[in-house]
Simulated assay, not measured.
Amino acid sequence: MPLMKKDPIVQGDALSPVEKLAARWDKAAYRAQGSPFEDLSVSALARNTGTKAWSRPGSVKGDTIARYIYLSFEELIEIEKLDMKSATQLLEICEATFLFEEECNELGSFDGIDKQAYHQRMRFVEEFGLYQDYPVALANLDFDLRELCAAEEVITFVDLMEFIDRLSDKAWIGGSYRNLQNVFAHGDEKGLTQYFPYRLGHRGFHLPEALSFI
C-alpha cells in the first residue's frame, strides 16, 4: 500500500552532495505523487523528455514512476537497489518531466491568441473531411506517443493536432511526433493514412481502415 505523502525536505546551506540529491528527490517525488505521470513507465518519460535512456540495475516488472516516488532517496538505493548513478538519473527524468509539462502549459496559454494556427488546423480538417472528434485511442500511434497523449489528456484528433503544434519548436522531438507534425503542416494525405483511417482520394475516416489498426 502506498505511503502517505511527505512534505519536501527544506534544503540547508551545509548539505552534503547526497543530501542535496535527497532534497531534490523529495521535492520531485512529492510533486509526482497523484500526477498524470505516476503510472507511466520511466523509460517512456525519458524518451518523451529527451533525457538519457533509462537504465537501472536488474530487470523489473512494472517499472513506472509510481514504483519509486513513495520512497525516499535512501530507500531507492536500499530497497530498489539503485546505484547512485541510476538514482540520480531517475531524479533528472522526474525533473525534466515537470519542466516539459510547464513548457507545454506556457505554450498552451497562447492558444486563444494564435488564431492563425487554429484556422490552419481547421482548414486541414475541412479539406479532407476529417472527423475532428475521432478518438486518438483508436489511432495507429506508437506506445510512447499514446502514453504521452493519455498523460496530457489529448483525446481527439483535433486535440492531437493542437498538441503537436505546441511541440513544433522543440528541437528534440522526432519519430512519430515529427512525422505527424509534417503531416498536419503540409496536408500530407499519404502520411495521414499511417496514423489514421484515412483513404487516399476519399474524404473522411473509414471503418475498414480503422479496423486494420486493431
Rank of each mutant, 00 (worst) to 15 (best):
M1C: 09
K5E: 10
D7F: 14
I9K: 13
V10K: 05
L15N: 14
P17I: 08
K20D: 12
L21H: 13
A22F: 05
R24S: 14
A28P: 15
Y30W: 09
R31Q: 11
S35F: 12
K52N: 07
W54R: 00
S55D: 08
R56L: 02
D63W: 09
I69K: 06
L71S: 04
I77Q: 12
I77P: 04
I77M: 11
E80L: 07
K81Q: 03
D83A: 03
Q89K: 06
C94H: 07
E95N: 07
E101R: 05
E102Q: 10
E103A: 11
C104H: 12
E106V: 12
G108T: 12
S109Y: 13
F110P: 13
F110M: 15
Q116G: 14
A117V: 08
Y118G: 05
D133L: 15
D144P: 05
D144L: 10
C149I: 03
A150V: 11
A151H: 03
E152Y: 11
M161I: 10
E162Q: 12
D165H: 03
R166C: 05
D169A: 14
A171Q: 13
A171C: 08
W172Y: 11
S176N: 04
L180C: 04
V183T: 00
A185G: 04
H186N: 07
Y198N: 01
L200C: 11
H206V: 07
A210G: 01
